[in-house]
Each structure stands twice: as structure tokens, then as C-alpha cells.
């Protein structure tokens, strides 16, 4: 029991640190990608290729003056960035980062917990993700902040439905709610993207919207709402809000690669297992999982610096009148195919 708890604690700490590290370097990567797309150099002063830029940014954020508006609801104002960060990090506990490692004859899972309702857990955390933004926007006592918060919550509620329906067709195919079993299903039957291209497309668009990334960044659209829900925030509280967005991006990239792109599976697993030991293979699998995730993060950035923002009615039209019916169609089509296969 103690050994088990110790293992889990270590895994939790490692996952937490890696998530934060990757989110940190995503901020740097975002500016580098933006520089590349806009034909600039990007940050290059702190360290080689600007590699120390996230640290410099962090120090800057901590050193800035902390301003709390006098009319703000102080307790909620302070709590909101923390809630945002909490809900962003919670999802990482069900993602299978790799298969197991063998240490001293024990099997250590590279996943914090494999609950049999993993997918529903993700829905639940995603649906509570809106609280941080709403509380932050309301407690600032600023009309722009409130507008941003309202936009964010209506956008998240609208896109959650299509997101859930897109995942339901994956669940119907794999017949399980555990993420690890879904990844293992793909090892035998091939990646889910082959059978669910429409489901993936819907999920990808909804993930963009849930992360509040361009073209869905209406909650903070700087041209109309100054900064949206974080207008009144300064110093590291603002930093936490922005940081939560990058954590969300990393987590949704990880979910997409686990659900649709085979997770930590390697091609030619049988052949490779004769060459490498189990542990090496497990770590290689994790590396491939991370590479897939980074690809998604890159695509997110690519879209941000290429596509302009939606208008509000376009956003609602896309969510309710295009994505939701498409997702429903996808569920019905998947069900029909499963039924035909069973009757065959």
C-alpha cells in the first residue's frame, strides 16, 4: 500500500512538472512560431534562440505591481486564476502517458489513474472549466470583463455539446470509457482517425473553442473588449490566466493524440520488442505520444497566427447549426455501421 502511494505520488509530481514545463515552453514556442509566420525572428535575447525567455517572462510577471480594483470582490478576484489553473491541470490525471515501466520487478503505470469512467471525467472537468473565467470576469466589477466572461461561458456551453457527441462515437466504437483501453484498442485495430475522421474534425474545432484560442478567442478579443475577462488582472494573476490557456492547449493536444492517433503505441511493436527492452520501448512510446501532442500544439499556434477571429453570430451559428447536427449525424452513422457489422 505504501509503495503504491509512493509510486502514485511520484507519477503525479512528474506529470505536474512536465505539464508546467511544456506549458512554459509553449509560450516561447508560440512567439517563435508567430515570428516565423510573420517573417520575424521572435525572441532571441535571453539565452541561445531565446531559450530562457519563459524564465524572463516569469520573473517579469512576478515583479510587476499587483493591482486589485477597489470595487472588486476581493476573495473571488484572488481565487479565480487559481480555479482556472486547477481545472486546466485536473484533466491530466486520466491521460495515459505511456504503458508501464518495470522497476525492481514492480509495474509502475505511466498514468496517474485509470478509472473506468475516464472519458466522463474529462467531460466533467471540461464543463467546470468555465468557472475560473466567469468568476474572474464578474469579480473584477468591470463591464468589459463581464462581457468577456459571458461570452466565454456561452461559447463553452455551446461547444461542449458537440465535443461530447464527437467523443460518444469513439466510445461506441471502442466500447469502453477508460482512456487506457481506448489506446490499447487502437494498437489492435488501427488509429481511430481512420474510422472517425468527422468525429476528429469536430473534436478538434471544439477543442480550439474550449481553449479560447483564435479563431474562437472572443472572450478576450482585445480590439472590442480590451482584454475580456482578464482586463483588470495584473502581475502573476494575469500570468496564471494566460498560463492556464497553454496548459489547456497541451492537455487537449494530449487527449486528441490519445483518442484518435494511437496514444503511446508504436508502429512495428512486435519487431521492436525483439530489439529493445520493455522499459526502453515504454519510454519510446511516451516520446512518440509527446511528439504527436507537440504537433497538435503547433497546429493550434499555426491557426492562431493565420486565421482571423469569428464574429459572434458566426461563432454561435457554427456551434449550434453546423457542428452539433454533424456530430449527431456522426453518432447515428457510427451506430448504423456497428449494427450492420453485428448482423453480418
Amino acid at each position: 500500500m505504501e509503495i503504491f502511494l509512493l509510486d502514485k505520488t511520484i507519477v503525479v509530481v512528474i506529470v505536474f512538472l512536465i505539464t508546467l514545463l511544456i506549458a512554459m515552453y509553449s509560450t516561447w514556442a508560440e512567439r517563435k512560431v508567430a515570428g516565423f509566420i510573420q517573417d520575424r525572428i521572435g525572441p532571441n535575447r535571453a539565452g541561445i534562440f531565446g531559450i530562457l525567455q519563459p524564465l524572463a517572462d516569469g520573473v517579469k510577471m512576478f515583479m510587476k505591481e499587483e493591482i486589485i480594483p477597489t470595487q472588486a470582490d476581493k476573495a473571488l478576484f484572488i481565487m479565480a486564476p487559481g480555479i482556472s489553473m486547477l481545472t486546466a491541470l485536473l484533466t491530466s490525471s486520466v491521460i495515459p502517458w505511456g504503458s508501464y515501466l518495470e522497476i525492481n520487478g514492480r509495474q509502475v503505470m505511466m498514468q496517474i489513474t485509470d478509472i473506468n469512467i475516464g472519458m466522463l471525467y474529462i467531460f466533467a472537468v471540461v464543463s467546470t472549466g468555465v468557472y475560473g473565467i466567469m468568476i474572474g470576469g464578474w469579480s473584477s466589477n468591470n463591464k468589459y470583463s463581464l462581457m468577456g466572461a459571458l461570452r466565454a461561458s456561452s461559447q463553452m456551453i455551446s461547444y461542449e455539446l458537440a465535443l461530447g457527441l464527437a467523443l460518444i462515437s469513439v466510445i461506441m466504437m471502442t466500447e469502453t470509457l477508460s482512456l487506457k483501453s481506448i489506446v490499447e484498442y487502437q494498437a489492435i485495430n488501427g488509429w481511430n482517425i481512420i474510422y472517425q475522421p468527422l468525429g476528429f474534425l469536430i473534436f478538434f474545432i471544439c477543442a480550439l473553442a474550449e481553449c479560447n484560442r483564435t479563431p474562437f478567442d472572443l472572450p478576450e478579443s482585445e480590439a472590442e473588449l480590451i482584454g475580456g475577462y482578464h482586463t483588470e488582472y495584473s502581475s502573476m494573476k494575469l500570468g496564471l490566466f494566460l498560463f492556464a490557456e497553454y496548459v489547456n492547449m497541451f492537455i487537449s493536444g494530449a487527449i486528441m493524440s490519445a483518442l484518435f492517433f494511437g496514444g503511446y503505441n508504436l508502429p512495428f511493436h512486435e519487431e521492436l520488442s525483439t530489439v529493445f527492452s520493455h522499459n526502453t520501448l515504454a519510454i519510446l512510446g511516451t516520446v512518440s505520444f509527446m511528439l504527436k501532442t507537440f504537433t497538435f500544439i503547433f497546429i493550434f499556434m499555426w491557426i492562431r497566427w493565420t486565421v482571423p477571429r469569428f464574429r459572434y453570430d458566426q461563432l454561435m451559428h457554427l456551434g449550434w447549426k453546423i457542428l452539433l447536427p454533424l456530430a449527431m449525424f456522426n453518432v447515428v452513422a457510427t451506430g448504423t455501421v456497428i449494427l450492420i457489422k453485428m448482423l453480418w
Partner: peptide, 23 residues
Amino acid sequence: FLAIVNIIVYAGAIMVLFLFVIM
């Protein structure tokens, strides 16, 4: 299952709408 559905439906959807209306 009941636990997670309780969170999705009540904490995630209905209370968000409550908060929305009150704000």
C-alpha cells in the same frame, strides 16, 4: 457514473446557467 453525471449536469451545466443569470 452517478457521481460524474452529477458533476457534469449540475455543477457543469445548470449552475453555470444560474451564475450566468445572476451575473
